[in-house]
Amino acid sequence: MPQITVDHSHSVTAGFDREGFARDLHAATVEIAAARPEACKTQFRPADLTAYGYEDPKERRHAVVHVTIGLLAGRTDDTKARLTETALELLKKHLKGDGAVVHASAEVRDLDASYRKFEGEL
Rank of each mutant, 00 (worst) to 15 (best):
E31G: 10
L83D: 00
Y115S: 06
H8C: 13
F21V: 00
A39P: 04
V30Y: 06
A73R: 09
R45T: 04
A63T: 06
H62N: 07
A100I: 05
L111Y: 01
R75M: 09
H8T: 02
P57H: 13
I69T: 07
K58H: 11
T29E: 00
V12I: 07
H66Q: 14
F16C: 05
T86P: 15
G53E: 12
L95S: 07
D98H: 13
E59H: 11
L71D: 01
T42M: 12
T68F: 08
L71F: 08
E89A: 13
K96H: 15
S105N: 10
H10D: 13
M1S: 12
A22Y: 01
E85F: 03
A47V: 02
D110E: 15
G120V: 08
D7Y: 04
V64C: 09
E85D: 14
T79R: 11
G120W: 10
H26N: 09
S105E: 07
D112P: 02
A106I: 01
P46S: 09
T76Q: 11
V67Q: 03
A113Q: 09
D110G: 11
R116V: 14
A104I: 02
T86L: 10
E107A: 11
D24T: 08
A39W: 06
G53K: 11
F118D: 07
H10S: 13
I32W: 01
R75Y: 05
A28P: 04
L72W: 05
A51Y: 14
D24Q: 12
E107H: 10
D24G: 03
E59N: 12
